[in-house]
Amino acid sequence: MKSVPEENQNLMKCEHMSCSYGGAPVIEGVDLTIRRGEFVGIVGPSGSGKTTLLRALLGSIKPVHGKVERLPGLRLAYVPQLETVDWNFPVTVGEVIGMSRPQRLMRPKSQNSELALIEDVLERLGLGGLLQRHIRELSGGQQQRVFLARALIQKPDMLILDEPTAGVDVRTRHEVLHVLADLNESPPHGDGIAIVLTTHDLNGLAAHLPRLVCFNRTVIADGTPAEVLQPYFLERTYGAPMEVLQHGGMPIVLEQGGDELRNRLNRSSAS
């Protein structure tokens, strides 16, 4: 029997998966495979079931139809939206990161080896020396990195992020994207990390990812940004006509009525 090369190994496979919260299905007939080391973006409008899909991937809700197959022993880690974090909670950077490590009875404090691991991850994420700081005292990019670090401490095979760039400025968005790309290319714990994220940001984030899934209750399109960011798929996903321009080799999505932006891009290309 031929063994599957590790880089092509399926970490998770959803087959005809439907999920509900007791009533009508929120997502239906989802077929999606995530392989080791992939970097996947999921885009779709509000209320399209993206968060439900993430919950199904995480195993916090069970499918009512179909199935989710996970690689045995698969380690998952989740980074929530920063907007859901209670920033007034009395917790330091070190405490946030340390809370995700398993605890041995009667050892509430991190051990030296554990602290060294935390320091390594923090250093890699550019957060060295901030362990004693309160989470509110950090910049937006640093805050996102702290929650990334908490996830990475669990040595995950797959990292799942819900809207990692929601509500952040352009600089922070770039920072987060570069950190994720860096983790995906050379993960801190040896094995490749698959990254799955949801985003509303088609041009600033989704267009830069290697694989994109258009999602609205089910998978509408799945492929590279060039394959997926097409007016036909976008209109089916968002329920509104959209235009796609090419600029510097990148697809740029415009809502209909985006004449002003199109003109500016044309002027920019001409100059």
Binding site: L58, G59, S60, L76, A77, Y78, V79, P80, T84, V85, D86, F89, V91, E95, V96, G98, M99, S100, R101, Q103, L105, M106, P108, Q154
Partner: peptide, 21 residues
């Protein structure tokens, strides 16, 4: 509280992520 320190902290600070962790 000493025995369950991290779990209690995680479940209090971030119950959703604690659940999936």
């Amino acid at each position: 509280i000493i025995g369950l320190y991290r779990k209690l902290l995680f479940a209090t600070f971030d119950p959703e992520v604690a659940g999936v962790s």
